[in-house]
Each structure stands twice: as C-alpha cells, then as structure tokens.
Design a protein around this nucleic acid. Sequence first.
RNA 1: GCGCCAGUAGCUCAGCUGGCUAGAGCACACCCCUGAUAAGGGUGAGGUCGAUGGUUCGAGUCCAUUCUGGCGCACCA
Length: 938
Amino acid sequence: MTETRDYKPTLNLPKTSFPMKANLAQAEPATLARWQATDVHGAIAAARVSAQPFIFHDGPPYANGSIHVGHLLNKVLKDIVVRSVLMEGRACHYIPGWDCHGLPIEHRVMTTLVESGKAAKLDTLSDDHRRMAIRRECAAYATKFIKTQAVQMQRLLTLADYANPYFTMQPEYEAGTLGVFASLLEQGFVFRQLKPVHWSIANQTALAEAELEYEDRVDPSIYVDFEAADRTKVDAVFGIECECTPSFMIWTTTPWTLPANLAIAVHPAQQYALVEMDGTLTIVAAEMLAKVSAIVGATAVETLATARGSALVGLEYRHPFCDRVSRIVAAEYVTMEDGTGLVHTAPGHGDDDYRTGLREGLEIYCPVQGDGTFDATVPAWLRGKIVWDANPLVVDHLQASGHLVHALQFTHSYPHDWRSRTPVIFRATEQWFIGVDRAAGGTGRSLRAMAMDAVTTSIKFVPQWGQSRLKGMLESRPDWCISRQRAWGLPIPAFRTANDEVFMTAASVRAIAQCVRTKGSDAWFTLAPAELLASYDAAGDGDAPKDLCIETLTKMYDIFDVWFEAGSSWHSVLQQRGVGFPSELYLEGSDQHRGWFQLSMLPALGVMGTTPFRTLLTHGFLVDKDGRKMSKSLGNALDVEVLLKDFGAEVARWWVSGVAYDGDIRIDLDYFKVAGESYRKVRNTLRFLLSNLYDAPAWTQEEVVNIASNATPESIDRWLMGELADLEANARSAYNEYDFRRVHLAIFNFCNETLSSVYCAAVKDRLYCDPADSPRRRQTQAVARVAVEVLCRLLAPFLPHTAEEAWMALRGAGAPLLFTQTHLGLPRRSDPRWDVVMVARGAVSKALEGAKTLGIDNPLDAAVTLPDASGTLGPFARELADLCGVSQVTLDAKATSVTVADLRSIPRCDRSWRRDGTVRQRSDGGMLSDRDAISVGV
RNA sequence: GCGCCAGUAGCUCAGCUGGCUAGAGCACACCCCUGAUAAGGGUGAGGUCGAUGGUUCGAGUCCAUUCUGGCGCACCA
C-alpha cells in the first residue's frame, strides 16, 4: 500500500501581485493622482509628437451643475476614442471645453440676486455698470462649475489637456468667435430684421422662454366679424348669391393686436360654412359652428353653403377700423379646438403669424413701441395708449361699429416677466440673423445648399441614420436668429450712429475682436466706442458709411446666441490653437443634430466652405430600466458620485464600452452589477495569466513573440496565438469603426471562452507540473505573456487603470507607459483543422456529462476514445487529453461517437492527479507518472 | 401634429441583400473541482421575434396600419 505524499510544494503554482479584488473606488484615485503628478498627458503627447495626428474636438458641455450620467456616457465614449487612437500609434491632442455664456447661468444668478435683494440696487446703475455687475457674478458662477466638472470628468479617468481647456468666455475664444462673425458678415450672410419676441414693457427688454412665468390672467375673449371686401368673390367660392356682404369671423383674446391684423388664416383642408346667424352672414369653420353659435348665443343659425379652406385663400376683407384690405391665407397650424377656425393674424405679434407673414410677403407690422404704447400709425383713438388700456377701447369700438359678435371675460394662463411679475406682450423687434438661403460668399451658394450637399456627399455618419436626421432638420430650418437681449454673453459689436442707423462692418468687428482678445468681452461694457474701435481704420473700410463719426456712436447691447459661440469652436480652438482643421470627428448626443452639429457646420461652411468635421458620431439618450427618460422629478436619475463610489470608474467605463449607443440606452444599477461581474471575469483571467509568469525569463517583447509564434502548428499554444491574432485584428478594426461594443464583446468572449474555459484549463497541467524550465512550460509562458501584452493594449482604451495595473504587474515598475506602446500586429494564420479539434472537444464535454451517471464525476478519472475517420485529429493526439481535461485520449478511425472509459481502477499520480498509464511507485515512495517523476527528480 | 430612432428568451443584444428545428452573454437550475478558491469548469431549461393586416412557395427579416418608448421640432391664435 502506498502512502499519499504531499507534492504541492513541488508544483509551480501561480503567484502574482495583481490582486483578485480590484478595489477600484480606492485604487483609481491613487492612479489618477500618479497620472497627474507625473504629467502622464504630457508624456504621452511627447511620445507622439511626430506621429500622424488624429484631430478630435470636444463639444463644450454647459458649465452648470455637477456632471450627470449623460456626461459620463459622452465623456467616456470620447475618451475611448482618444485612447484607442493613441494605441494605434497616432497623436491625439484633445482639448476639453466648456460653454459658459447664456441664459441658464444668467437666470440662476439673477434669481440669487433677486432673492438676496441685490437686484433692486442693480436697477439704479447705468446700463454698462448693471450689466457688468451681472456679468461678474455669471463669470464667477461659470468658473466655479468648470472647476467642479473638470475634477469630476478627470475622475472618470479621461485623458485630455485639462491644464489648457477652452472656455467660450476666454478672451482669445471670444475674439475667435468675433472673427468667424466678421467673415460671415463680410460674405453677406448676416442681416438685421424684425421678429416678434416676448417683450417686457416694465423692463423694456426682450425675454427668453426661461424668463417667463405663466400666471392666470383675465382677458377679453372676443368674436369679431371682418367684412369681406368683395361679395361676388365670396359668392363664387360658395356657389350661391348672398343678399348682403358676408363676414369672416375670428376669435382673439388680445384685442390690442387687432390694429396689427394683416391677414386671416384658415386651414386649407377644413370645411368652412357660410351661415346666416341671427340675420347676418358670416363664415366660420363648419366643425366649429355649433360651438361658436353656443358661445355667442346665436338663436337662428342656418348653413347656406360650405367650401374648403383652400378655396377661401386669396379672398379679401376690410379691416374693421383700420383703413386697409387684407386677405385670407392658408396655415396648417389652424386647429379646430378653440375659436372659429379663422385665425386673426398679426405678423408683428406672434411667432406663427410672423412665419405666415414672411411666407405671404406681409409687412412685419408692429405699431406697439417699447414702452407698450401705440405709435402714430394706428387710428387716432388708439395713439399713445398702452396696450392694456387699448383692450377695452378696441372692444367698445367694435361694439359701436357693429363688428363685435360677442365678448366675454376669459381666464387663461398668460406669460409674465419673472422679475417684474407683469404680463409680457409679443412684439416684433429688430434682430440679427444668419440667412440660410442667401446666396452669398465666394461660391455664391447658400448655407443651406452647402449644408445639404455636405450631408449627402461628404460627411460620414455613425450610425448612418444621423444623415436623414440632420438632413431633415436642415431642410426645414429657418434663418438663424443669433441675437439675444441679455447681459451674459458675447456682445454683437454693433453701434448706432447719431442719425439712428446701425453701424457694424467686418472691419469694425475685427477691430473690436482685437480689443476683446486682450481685454475680454467685458471691454464692450467698460470702454467707450472710440476706445473699442482704437485699431479701426474707417477710411480704409469700404463698407463704412461716408459720414461715420466714431465720437457720436452709441453701443448696442444685443449678445450672441450661445450656439453661435459654441458653433465657432472649430476656429477658436482648432484653428487658433493650431490643432488642425477640420476635426476628424464630432461625438455628441443625438440632440446635437439640432444643436452643435448643425450650428458648427453653418458658420464653418460660410467661412471655410467646408464642414468642421469629417465624421459625426451620435449616441442616444439614457433612459431608465423601463425605457423612460431620466429626470430628477421621476426620481429615476442615477447619481454619478454614487456609481463611482459603489462600482468605480472602470466598471462604469466597461459598461459604456459595451453599450449599444445608437438609440436609447437603458441604464440601471443592475446593469452596473452585471458590468462589474464581467469586469471581474476579465480581471481574473488576466490575473491567471500573470500569476503563471512569475518565474518566466525576462524576454524582450520581440523574443516572446518569436518564441510564442514558433510553437508547433498542432500545439494548444499555436492555437491560442491564432486566436490572439484574430482578436487583435477584429478589435482594432472595430475600434476604428467606433464599434466599441464589438470590441467589448470580443474581448469578453475571448477571456471567458477562449482563455478561461479552453486555454487556461488545458495548459494548467503543464504550467503546474512540468519541470519549471522545460521547453513546453516556457513556451506556454511565452504565449501567456503575449496574451497579456495583447489584452493590456486592447483593454487600455476601456480600462486605462486596470490595463496599466496589469501592465505594471507584467513589466515591473520601470515599465514604459502603456499608452506609449502600440499594438503587436500579430500575423494571422488560420488553421481550419482546429475547428475539427474544437468540435471534438465539445463532444467530449457532453460525453463526460453523460458519464457522470456511471460514477465518473472527475474528468481526470476518464479516458476518452474519439472517432477520427478523416485522420484530422491524429497530429493533435498529444494535446487532446489536456484540451479535453481527461487523463487519456485515444483516436479510433472506425468509431462513430465518443466513448468514455472509467480509469478509476488504474493508479493516480499523487502530484498531477492524472491516470495516464505511466503511474507507479517511485524511489521516494510516491505514486508518480513519468513526467512528474522527472519533475520531482526521482 | 411633424422628422429621426427603437421594440427578438427574465436582462443586454446578434440575426447582412427574406429560406434548414431563431443565436450569444448574463441571470437561473443541476452537477464537477477545491493546486485561478469571496475563484474555475460542465450540462440544461428558457422566445407565438410589440400588435394587426398584406406581398410571397416561404417573413424576425419586405409593405401598410397601429401601440409603446426615446431625441428633436412645432403648437396652445
């Protein structure tokens, strides 16, 4: 009887400093601190100075609040691009940026000022001083959140030039924006035009949507008859003969806008009825007739005829109290919910009306002045009256003239100025526009034409559907209104001359840009026109008015739409900083088709004649587990801080890398748990490989690749080298196509299946039991090391911390930076025989499962006979037992299925636990196989 | 209301130009290992492919309608 000896100390068991537990929440900040202390960004940049550049431009997030999961997604995707490009050996100078100006910040700041009572004091200051006071607060606010977000973004382990970020409020950036504007102005894309805006009478200013508060208000709701100008034409439309002149009945809750009425809109597809209503002939939508009759209290109503709205178009009517004739127009927005189906249209007092007016060539007529009073163009009885006082006057007047069908008091929600709490009006004012249909510039083509061209022919879209999306938006977009009446922004540097004309030329804008470049846009508020225009040469400016007198100029106070600033970043950042133009890629959420994508390409097309990007990559929005949007109010928003604390940035990054980013992306804590599990799987696989390299020779990279590649074609090692080469090639091409999910799945499957399940299991025996320095074991170590080398590089864009951790465990503390390395570029050598081998392996697994009923629970207790009619398996005989995890494999050309034999009756090696048929008692008394006897030296 | 997108096992997703019993991973169940061990391995059970109606010899895959959800736009005179 033999005694069982303990051979464990004689085995080459795994050892490694690479821990199983990642401990990311603690380890990542340490890594980050090390990166910052050693200026890893600078070192990587230096290593790639002469490499082929990949120009990638960051779209600026808004400097407001902490980052949310949307930022996480966007920034990590961008970082994966940056790092995967670096791993390809290219240079990627990536500058993070922030959008600083604009209403959300100004609104926040103003709210604080109002609450603290400081706002009242501001009102006592001069325009310049008041604006400067607000701007100082806003700048401080933006700066604060830039700092916050920069820290948070770095915590996501993103690699970027955080030491030199760009902000849209930087003087050089602002000057760059003005430069872009000057070029557009020079080429004739910019113009000034009337447009209705929300207007606060109390503060004499335009307001943005965010500055409105909706409160209930009681207004007169009136039904008014507008008499047809030509009875016979109405007769023709309805096909009857009227006994008296019919009227078109409209409804409005703003009687004061009636003086500005220039049209009546009908829906072209709706039916309109000519009715006799209590003795008068009137026209209303057929569908609204019953409702209207009821409201106005008509007793005798008879429909005489009907006609489609489209037939009414072109008919004319007489204004009830202004001396003019206007016409019926068609509008799709006319609904059958309220009113009469005929819509009072005043292009100077409504957005829809404005659009209709533009389309129909109507005047954008606004007889209401900034102080809310009527000007001299209205009938005498309204002149100088405030619009609110005009309401009852209009009603009375209509009543007296017999045009009023009905009037009642009507309570509805109405916009109010959030500061003065007074009702606002809609009033046409002069605004600056960039025309999208103006044939201008060197090419004489419109921005829309150029944009459509670029979208259909030159821009690459990822995913492809971005193309139709952007196209649809460009087709329908109106002219771009770039002016805002606010304090927090980049001033549109226009002046008013003594004779009330607007002065702004390309040369004057450039002169001011020069001033702004050194003093910032605050200069507009602190300097006099003459100082601002110090470098301006009026005499040399062909566009300047002849009698220009700089001394008498006054500053105008519109600022730029923030989108114009962000949309100029390709110049203010890429060109001005010498990064290069255009950017290879813009990568943002799908909302940016309307925003940054589109509003960057328009200025660039105008100035450069080309888009500022070659490829547009867009990702969907994050939604919750049930597909609903994330929002604070629903309480389904995930907190980035919590994610980082509970899972670490790397698990979050791993999750991002595996997400299908086209379309909605569901996000939930559970998905991070799943990502955490698969991260651990990859980590442990890496750990197993590393742990078997503790005693490997210090091969150079070239040496290991050589040794590994020279394995015999029928060895497991050679098989893995082939798989590695495939993985590397597939992953690189997927990275190149921004298909990170494919990379993620390929890496995971490789670790899970190829390595963990097949290779590592098969190779364990030789790693543990072969003599430490045997050629077979060394070769496997070489292959294992190549596997780690490849995986570190492939994983690096997703998991910069973990990849580096593994890299240093492999190469030691003195290792070069992982991001200065490039992919190995292993040659692909496919050997179809391995498919046969793997099919056989699968068959063995199933057969072994069946053998469990025979009591063979442990595969090492089994010998297996494989059918090999074709003889393909023959050359692989030596490796098959290891591959199948059994003690012995024999091949049988005549067999048709796998058979399992029970080896429990033959001796088991005390050291390797195998029953390979060579096991016998050795000189030390132990039962050992031949191989193990040699290993132990007995 | 308009434009774009998505809807396949409990979950995340593959399924190209229509063609054998619809695939993978995770989770789950059962089992093995205990020399990757708060690890590792094996086997297995899961789906009327959002709904309806068409085209076709044949549809998850094409067409129409519809429902649900997302992004953007417009609208409340």
